[in-house]
Design a protein around this nucleic acid. Structure first.
Lengths: 210, 210, 210, 210
DNA sequence: CAGTAATCGAGACGGTACGTCCCGTCTTTAT
DNA sequence: ATAAAGACGGGACGTACCGTCTCGATTACTG
């Protein structure tokens, strides 16, 4: 379940792996990420700061990116508010991530993971379930709204999640876009409007004269 | 205007920069990108294939990523169909990019640019206007729809573009999502629905008992 | 004592430096020197031929010249004959070096070391003790001659060594001079003559009429 | 006669070569040599400082070393004193060169020329006559001494020159030796002694017991 | 309680890309 | 034809980082 291999280790003979080292390594990763950015993150620096050896590192994770991912995975999941106000709940959870990205070293590392994922199947395998899990709180909010009748029963959750997060991620990571609370509120309000009213019929326009 | 420095160069004294070299370099970049992927792209390989020297390369672009960007910038802009069917026009232009990303070397390189942008101000400066320009065709479609009356006059274009492209980019680059034509059609239909009906009022739900 | 850092290294923690690599590198240096001359000697070629990485090379020596010096230092010292014939002994040892310079790759590299020494304090530091040590065999010959009474007891050894080697080095490295055995014999015979008879009084000539 | 090709140029059609440029280039060479040493001497720097183009430089001299040599060749020849005191005359001319080497940029460049000569036939061809010419003043002193009867009539001039200059060059360029006036005086006194008394017989020592 | 075996810190290793530097040549317009 | 300016191909350099490996020293369990 965890990214870490240490915990799942079968208890055989020989010296057991040190949990302290493991944490020191991930802590060091976060510190360097915060201080010097992803470009300044090297395995040697991590080892030096964590007072661990590189073999201790590579025994646990096959590459630098996996370490970043493991460090990322230690951050607590987004917490869905589940009040009875859909828009506010969505806004809250969206702001949680935006703040996380803007205020912690993880923001700077996310593009690196995305990049690495694109040509590293091993990392994709590790990253995808983590991403998948991160979508869950949003789905919980949507399910509650459906139960309350605030959204149609046949709402496609995956599509809804993409509609919500797509523009946010775009503005946060891709493009230097407006992610103020006001802008996000409007954005979400339009998305929710689309979800409530459902997709438009296949042909829009062209029937004006009629 | 262009990414290239050679074209815009004032015609002073000294030997002018070779346009032939410039194109050979960008061509070589694309070829290697196609053949070996972004990870296999090195400045030495580019120089060898383009029969150019590394100094000729570095005289023009300060890093590999700038070269990729310049190569990317040579690809023709997406072509808006501008029929009178908004949904079809959007679907068409979205599919254009999805095909471009999936069928050309540029798809593999895009995550690299995003990643590099995140910690390289110099690249950000070069990349952002390129991205900005790429949003224009979508805006043209939206403007036509507004003129036809298929969209409200006060539609926020930037917001609309983000709503359209956010989920698509998310599924293409971030997450291994469904970008089949059917899935995209549904996605766009919901977005357009939201745009037509406008944002929901600030409070959704909570008024059930009333 | 040795140029090599590996041998003298205190046996601390960590993987010890590989003596095999060290020798492979110096062997490769000599081979390339012999095959392609000093101009054809590059660190990449050495690394490739020695199947070592450039980091392994640069961990030991700070520059190409230091490597050449280390390779040079592995050649056996000149062997003083120490018969009871001073002139023959000197001629023998001088011919040993002349042959070494003319028949091994070191000859071609020596000017390079001299050149580099002249503007590289670090190399000077490494080179000087090596040169100093190389003067010893000649001094041994001179000391024997003094003991036998063939040279004055107060003979200045440093001066004698310079008188002997100066002209030889000049003809070998600087100027395309005659270093045949006959020429060297005459040269040494005059030097020894000077050493035996001692310096002339401060004023030569000017007292002719007396 | 001169190292420069400019002067000997046949006066054909077209713009004549600029003598001003030529001098500016050699001046610049000396300045950079003095300021940054041979290692810091590059053709680009020379061109920039002389406000000349690189083609102007390479039209005259085939390589950097030839330029240094041409700059060197502009320095006045050593001036033989030709008093009636052989030892003093030799000491004077030797000190002239020692001072030149120690006090002008040429000292630092000399090892470079020697080095380059060793693997550059073209430079050897240019350098050797210059060196040869520089030996002339010493020979003049020796000839005067022979005429005065201070040296044997059959003194071998080439050998004598090598005996005199060899140790001096050795101590100046090769080895960090003593080139104080006192040390040089002693050195020369022994050499002159050898020249006056002539070579020792072929066998020295070995007849002790007899 | 000795033996076995996996772990630990330290740091060297092979490999490889990077970006810089310099050389000597070439291409442009202006004298 | 030569001048200044400066781009060009070529190629070496020394640095940096990756992920692996080799040491001697620990630290558990297993017999």
């Amino acid at each position: 379940m965890s990214i870490s291999t240490a915990i799942a280790q079968a208890r055989g003979p020989g010296r057991p792996r040190s949990l302290a080292s493991e944490e020191a390594i991930l802590d060091a990763t976060m510190q360097i990420l915060a201080r010097e950015g992803y470009g300044g993150l090297t395995t040697d620096k991590i080892a030096a700061l964590a007072k661990a050896s590189k073999s201790t590192i590579y025994r646990r994770w096959p590459s630098k990116e996996h370490m970043v991912l493991a460090a990322f995975d230690r951050s607590p999941p987004l917490e869905p508010k589940n009040s009875d106000d859909l828009l506010n709940d969505l806004l809250d959870i969206v702001m949680q991530l935006v703040d996380l990205i803007r205020q912690t070293p993880l923001g700077g590392a996310l593009p690196a993971l995305v990049f690495e994922r694109s040509h590293n199947a091993q990392l994709a395998e590790a990253l995808d379930p983590v991403i998948e899990r991160r979508r869950e709180p949003t789905k919980a909010i949507l399910r509650s709204a459906i139960l309350r009748g605030d959204l149609p029963k046949n709402t496609d959750l995956e599509l809804a999640v993409d509609l919500i997060w797509g523009p946010v991620i775009l503005r946060t990571i891709f493009t230097p876009g407006d992610v103020s609370i006001g802008a996000l509120r409007t954005l979400l309000a339009v998305v929710v409007s689309g979800l409530i009213h459902g997709p438009v019929p296949l042909r829009i326009g062209g029937a004006h004269g009629v």
